[in-house]
Simulated assay, not measured.
Amino acid sequence: MTTNDRRVLVHPDKEALAGSVAARFITKIIDILDEHDEAHVVLTGGGMGGAVLTEIRTSAASDTIDWGRIHFWWGDERFVPKGDPDRNDQQAFDALLDHVPVDPAKVHPFPSSDEIASLDEAAVAYSDELAAAAPEGATHPRFDILFLGVGPDGHIASLFPGHPEIRIKDATVVPVRNSPKPPPERLSLTLPVIQSADRVWMVLAGSDKASAIGLALAGASVDEVPVAGAEGRRRTVFFVDREAAAEVPENLIAPSY
């Protein structure tokens, strides 16, 4: 992929960033539901991921969304008990999903450590759930919007630099052990699944993310900087604050969406 295929949208601060992404999500998801019977959205965790979901919930336009027609998935999860505050899904329930009329059958959290015996079994179970919701002949749904956070080391989902999971292409979900960030056991979508999404939206803030973005846009290897491989089939957008944009070349910063 060339850097021209990616857009970098810079916002003055974290608050403006979260509000802008929330507004864009509401507008885009309404458009998607005008074209399709259902939508599939992949959520992320982290501070900005939660902030965006909170802004969506508190927006006056939130009531215009037909929430019951949206499937919610997650890009990765920590293999800890259900309800643990470390889980990305719990953060999403607290910020948004417990407050809007979603269809519980369309909310797809990763298995928790108290629901299934092992990490490997959990990966298989989520792979099966993805396949059950997929079009005929596919291994997973058509994701309309896939949110990603980006770590200071350039990791996305739970695909970390130099770890073998970033190179796996023959699975939809991988068990992750020895994560450099606690907890050590996690589950993650694979890079090919991430790259199959129509739209990949990365939301990140802070000066500690500047190097990762700069390296990704400069063509760093995916193995060394996993975010370099994050791309959507139709659109790839970095939503960032000014601090995170410090190392982005001026010509790559989009004046508008």
Rank of each mutant, 00 (worst) to 15 (best):
D5G: 08
R6Y: 05
E15I: 10
E15M: 10
V21T: 09
A23G: 14
T27G: 13
I30N: 15
L33G: 08
E35Y: 09
H36Q: 15
A39Q: 09
A39W: 09
V42A: 03
G45N: 03
G49A: 02
G49K: 03
G50A: 14
I56Q: 06
R57A: 05
A60K: 09
T64D: 15
D66L: 11
R69S: 12
W74E: 11
E77G: 04
V80P: 00
P81L: 01
P85T: 02
F93H: 08
F93R: 12
D94M: 07
D94A: 07
H99T: 01
H99Y: 02
P101G: 12
D103T: 00
D103R: 00
P104E: 02
S112C: 13
S113F: 01
A117T: 11
L119F: 07
D120T: 12
D120G: 10
D120P: 11
Y126I: 00
S127D: 10
D128R: 06
A134I: 07
G137W: 13
F143K: 00
L146E: 05
F147E: 14
F147Y: 15
L148E: 03
D153P: 14
H155N: 14
A157W: 14
S158K: 15
L159V: 13
P161Q: 03
H163F: 08
H163Q: 03
E165Y: 14
R167F: 05
D170L: 03
D170Q: 04
T172W: 08
R177I: 11
S179G: 07
E185P: 13
R186N: 13
R186E: 11
L187G: 12
S188D: 14
T190I: 00
I194P: 09
Q195H: 00
S196P: 01
A197Y: 07
A197M: 01
A197W: 08
R199H: 04
V200F: 06
W201H: 05
A205D: 03
S207A: 14
D208T: 06
K209M: 04
A212D: 13
A212G: 06
I213G: 02
L215V: 07
L215S: 08
A218S: 15
G219E: 14
A220C: 12
A220G: 15
V222H: 10
E224V: 04
V225C: 05
V225D: 10
A230P: 03
A230I: 04
E231N: 10
E231M: 12
F238H: 04
V240A: 08
E243C: 09
A245C: 12
P249C: 12
N251G: 09
L252R: 05
Y257K: 09
Y257N: 06
Y257E: 12
